[in-house]
Amino acid sequence: MAEVKQERWGTRLGVILAVAGSAVGLGNFLRFPGTAAQNGGGAFMIPYFIALLVVGIPVGWAEWTMGRYGGRKGFHSSPAIMGVIGGGSVARYLGVLGLLIPMVVYMYYGLIESWCLQYAVAFATGGIGLDGNTATMAAQSGTYFGQVSGSAGEGAMSAGTWGFWLFVITVNAYFVWRGLSGGIEKFCQWAMPAMAICAVVVLVRVLTLGTPDPAHPELNVVSGLGYMWNPRFDALGNAETWLAAAGQIFFSLSVGFGVIINYASYMRKKDDVVLSGLTASATNEVFEVGFGGLITLTAAFVFLGAAGATGGTFGLGFNTLPVVFAHMGPVGNVVGAVWFFMLFLAAITSSLSMLQPVKAFLQEALGWSNGRSVIAVVLFTAGGSLWNLQHTKDLVALDTMDFWVGTATIFVLATVQVIYFAWVFGIDRGMEEAHHGARIRIPKIVAFVIKYVAPTYLIVVFAAFCRQSLGDRIDALVEDPVAAQTLGVVVFGLFALVVATRIGEKRWRAQGLDLDGKFPPDDDEEGERR
């Protein structure tokens, strides 16, 4: 990689906050509370924490370890690193999924990010114009979201949406262009504490709401917390509860996303990955359970009751909560602005992590400069985003990308990664590699968990997921041309990445690099001397 300037993280805290920033997103605040309330309330936390211990943290450690090992071999992209770990071209081309996921997810995540900023600005400048009783405001809120997202018809969003989207992709491009330490790390070191402060501000406001409507004394903060946390143990006998818990942990921690493997590749042999990986996961859990678990449904229940405290990620976040803020009176606009700015920060720390792996790949595979790689990845992802901006009706295009790439492919990549790590690279070698520079020891049982339990768990959950969703999704592809064409956009992206990987493979061989991982890294002896 002689022509590529070697990038490194500035500090250990920097890489931890960058990985945590990648993991903390809208799902922590919007998806988690809804999923928990629907699947046993407090009892949901039993399968949730089991999934964290069995899949989330161990598979995360494996990914951190693979990334750092690949970096020691001079590689920073998922295909190259997987080729080294898996010892050949099959693993290398499966590693292309580690580029496809962040690239395609960015194509719609950048749009959602711009909605958050648009809502934050709207609340900061007087609200989104909700007035009247709850039912009227709910209808107005739905209309407003329709204008922002364009979900009412193809390309039917307001002009402001275009402006906010252009601003968001420019900001993302700027920080990725600034580089790892000077751009992403510096931004996350500022954004993560800012996000925590915003969350605390909203949390304090929500927990001090008391009983806002004396005519409905049953709608109070304690009842709102009860709506989220009162356990229903019968849910534990339902397989769907366990599936939902595994899915929530899995997507929340961003394992199998192609990001951690890239971020960890900028670490040295002596840098710790064990404590860093655990700390990043713990940070994600604080935002998810500590903030998401207390704010969202509690606020919705206090003003709207159990019937109002429902809805998926978009419904809860962009339709229900604006009604809740409107019920808070004048201070509601401030709380709304802080809340949506926090979601914007959560989104941008994630979206930056989606661009970096693809940029690093273009530099590595094609030998392009930093600037050229940034321009290429921005233009390519903007093309995909434009597709989503043109096909906004019922958000079918966005939803199609989210299901096939942002959900199903993540399962596949995580399973591939954990199997290559445990069974091809070797679990004993993997554990030894993980402990270089480690500040804490990984319990011995984790090796067994990574080798046997995690792959089984992932395959079972994926099979159940396919059984639950795949039939309807295939029907949608047949019936809806937009869904089918959107999948075509994804396949085109995959094809482009495979071609670039083939070019990179030839370049790496010509440079005499050990792309099949046959020899130990060059820093082995150097590392021992340090």
Partner: peptide
């Protein structure tokens, strides 16, 4: 909110905050 609800909430919050607190104490100490 039921007693069981309080228990689950307090235990879950204690678990995540304790883990994060312990992790950051170790990271910042090194």
């Amino acid at each position: 909110m039921t007693t069981a609800g309080w228990i689950f909430m307090v235990c879950s919050l204690t678990a995540v905050w304790s883990l994060a607190g312990w992790c950051y104490a170790r990271v910042l100490r090194d």
